[in-house]
Amino acid sequence: MRSVFVGAIRRGAPAVIIAAVAVPPILIDGYALSVAINVAQYGVMATAWAMFSGPTRYVSLATVAFYGVGVYTAALLGGSMPWAIVLLAAALSGATLAILAGMLTLRLSGVYFVIFTFSLSELLRQIVTWYEVNVHRSVGRYVFLDVAPAHIYSQLLGLLALLLALAWLLRRSRMGLALRIIGADLVVANHIGIDTAKVRVLLFAFSAIFMSTAGAIIAPRWTYVDPAIAFSQTISFEVLIMALFGGVQLLFGPLIGVASLCLVFEYLSIQFPDQLIAFLGLIYLLIVYVMPSGIVPACSAVGQVLALREKAVA
C-alpha cells in the first residue's frame, strides 16, 4: 500500500505543486504572496538551471550573473521604457552574456567550468559595484516602478509556465535527444554528427534568458538594489541545491525541490537567521551522501524497499 502511496505522490506532486503555486494571487495575503513570489522566482531559475546543467552535467554557478543582469536592466531602463521592452532587453542581455561565456568555456572541463561561472558572477558584481561607486556616485539605487506584487507574481507564473512548456517540448525534440547523448558521451555525440559546441552554447543562452527575465520581473519588488543583493552568490548556490534536491532528471524535479526548500529556508531565515548558511551546507552534504539523484528517486527507492518488505511479510 505504501508503495502505491509513494507512486501517487510521484505522479500527483507536479499537479499539487502547480495548483499550490498557481493559487490566484487575490486569495492570499501579503506575507503568503511574498513567499509565493519567492517560490515562483526560484522555480523559474531552478528549472532553467536543470535544463542546462542536468543533461550536460556542467554545473553552472552563473545563475546569479544572469539574474543580476536582469535586475539591473530593469533598474536602469524600467523608468523610461515600456515594461515589455524592459523584459525583452533583460532577456537579450542574459542571452548575450551566456553566449559569450559559453563560447569562452567550450574547452574547459567540468571543474574549471564551475570556477569560471563563479568568477563571472563575482566579476560582474565587482564591475557593477565599481561603476555605481565611481560613475553613479552611490553604491545602491532606488527602483521606483509601480508594479503590484500580485502582478509580479502572475508574470513569474507566466514565465514559469512558458519555461515548463518549452522544457517539455525540448525533452521530446531532436535537441533534447542531442542533450542526453552529450551528457552520456561527448565523443560519441561528436561522432554521430552533433555540433556539441553549438548545442551547449544555445542551451546555456536559453536557460540564461529565463534567469535574466526572472531578475527583471522581480526588480520592482525591491525598492532598493545594490550589487551585493543583485549578485549575491548565495542565489546561485540555492538554485543549484534546490534543483538537485528535487532531482534534475525529471521535468518537475527542480520545482519539487524549490517548493520544499524555499519553505524551509523561509522558516529558517526567520527563526535561525545566523544558522541558515550552515544548514545550506548540510543539505549539500545530504544530497551528495544520501540521495545523489534527488528526493523523488530517493522516495521511490524507499517505496520499493517498503513494498518488498510488505511482500516478504505477507
Binding site: 552535467r57 554545473v59 572541463s109 567540468g110 571543474v111 564551475v114 548556490f237 538537485l244 545566523d274 544558522q275 541558515l276 548558511i277 550552515a278 544548514f279 545550506l280 551546507g281 548540510l282 543539505i283 549539500y284 552534504l285 544530497i287 551528495v288 551522501y289 545523489p292
Partner: peptide, 21 residues
Amino acid sequence: DIDSLLATFGLMFVIEGALLW
C-alpha cells in the same frame, strides 16, 4: 568531479555557518 564539488561546497558552508555563528 561533481560529487566532490558539492561535498566540499557543503563543508565550506557548514564551517562558514559555524564561524559566523
